[in-house]
Simulated scan of single mutants.
Amino acid sequence: MQLKELSEQSGVSAASIKYYLREGLLPAGDAINATRARYSARHVERLELIHALRRIVGLNIEQIRGILKMADDGAPRLDLLAAVQRVVLELDSVATADGGVGTRAADAVVRLRGWPDSPSDARNALNAHLELMESLNIPVSGELLDTYSKAMDDVAGVDIAATTAPDSVDELILTAAVGMHVHSQLVLKLLALAQASHAIRRYERDA
């Protein structure tokens, strides 16, 4: 297919396609002559991914470029999923006050749940958040961490099972990025509803 057909099939304007080509997000088509190229279903899939990362997840061009470069360079799926998680959930590689060793609470959660005792942006973010709560004198009991981590372990198991199945790397990124974005919001909204419901039950008699 040529540019016009690619635009029609993908629903992306010709101007946007040319922009993605210039930015290196979309691989060049097979040249027909000096001004025309032929594109394939692979280009349609990549455009679907770019559109979802921009419109649904809200990533910028530089963030998308970084993820796609890893994919095109053949990065292992585990590294690719970690990069997607870092960008989508805004997990910066935060150095903890203890030099990155971690908090006792975070280490206890890892042991309790049987999670791999490996460094990651997610673990750094948890360490940093637990340190923040401690600095604010907000207690985090073992019971609370047990309850929260058990619930999240169940949710994460379902999420990852859904994102590791696709054979296509672009489909893997699409499923993981959109899934992480919308599912994390779903967890927050369900938590908000549960909190509101518990508050109503406790305080409606006092109203």
Results as ranks from 00 to 15, higher is better:
D121E: 06
P166D: 01
N127Q: 04
L186W: 14
S168M: 05
A156D: 09
L172I: 02
S168P: 03
I160A: 05
D154S: 11
S168Q: 08
V140P: 03
S120Y: 07
S184I: 13
V158A: 13
G142K: 02
R123P: 01
R123I: 02
L174D: 00
L190A: 13
A165T: 10
G179P: 04
S197L: 04
Q185D: 12
V182S: 09
G114E: 08
V182C: 12
A156T: 12
E143S: 15
G157T: 11
L136R: 04
S168W: 08
D170I: 00
A194K: 10
E143L: 14
K189S: 12
D146Y: 01
A192P: 04
L174G: 00
L130G: 00
S149A: 15
L145Y: 07
L190W: 14
R202I: 09
L126A: 04
L132W: 05
E171Y: 00
G157F: 15
I160Q: 01
E171N: 06
G179L: 06
G142I: 01
A151F: 14
E143V: 09
A128P: 03
A177C: 10
R202S: 15
T147H: 10
A192I: 09
A161Y: 13
D121Y: 06
V187Q: 04
Q185S: 13
S184A: 15
S168Y: 08
A199P: 06
R113G: 03
L144R: 11
R201Q: 14
T147M: 14
M133Q: 05
A165C: 05
H129Y: 11
H181G: 01
V158H: 10
V187D: 01
N127P: 00
G179I: 10
Q185M: 14
R201T: 09
L186Q: 11
H183E: 07
A176E: 06
L190I: 13
S184W: 11
I200W: 15
L145T: 07
H183I: 10
T164K: 10
K189W: 14
Q195I: 10
V178D: 02
D117R: 00
N124H: 13
S118T: 14
I160W: 04
L191K: 15
E131A: 00
A122Y: 11
A151W: 12
P166G: 01
L145R: 10
A151R: 07
L130F: 08
S135Y: 05
N127Y: 04
N124K: 09
D117S: 05
A192Y: 15
V155R: 02
G157W: 12
P166H: 05
A162G: 08
A176F: 05
R202Q: 12
D167I: 07
A199S: 10
A199C: 12
D153L: 03
G179K: 12
S184L: 14
V140M: 09
A151N: 12
L136M: 11
E171M: 06
H198F: 15
D121N: 08
I160V: 11
P166Q: 06
V178R: 07
L130N: 00
D154I: 15
R202A: 15
V140R: 05
M133W: 07
A165N: 09
L132Y: 09
I138V: 12
M180G: 05
H181I: 03
T175H: 04
E143C: 07
V169H: 01
I173F: 09
R202Y: 13
S141C: 14
W115M: 06
K189Y: 15
P166N: 07
S168F: 04
E171K: 09
D167E: 10
A161V: 05
L186N: 15
R202T: 14
I160D: 00
